[in-house]
């Protein structure tokens, strides 16, 4: 249970913060709308990711699922962060 909880919680945080951030860095003119949508969808996605991890057969599988979501998100964010101008230029 602890593994599933931490795996879901941490990858959920990564997805909740970085997915709207990636979108905002590319679509600077729509940051306000992305933030508004995130209040509903990103917070629900956090709980959704945790639920997915709780559905895993073992702690190891939960971490695999968490990694499958978090690692690509982090990679895309890092690329976007250094390539897209973002609101601060």
């Amino acid at each position: 249970m602890w593994h599933k909880t931490f795996a879901g919680f941490l990858s959920g945080v990564v997805v909740m913060i970085l997915v709207p951030s990636i979108l905002s860095l590319w679509l600077v003119a729509h940051i306000n709308v992305i933030l508004a949508t995130s209040l509903v969808l990103a917070l629900a996605a956090w709980a959704g990711v945790m639920t997915w991890c709780y559905g895993a057969e073992s702690g190891k599988q939960a971490w695999q699922r968490a990694g499958m979501l978090a690692i690509p998100t982090i990679i895309i964010f890092v690329i976007t962060f250094f390539t897209a101008a973002g609101p601060t230029g």
Binding site: M16, I17, L18, S21, L43, F81, G86
Partner: peptide, 16 residues
Amino acid sequence: NLSILLQAGFGFAVFK
């Protein structure tokens, strides 16, 4: 209670 995490994370990730 927890959107402060979204706010802080977003602030650092997007607004540096």
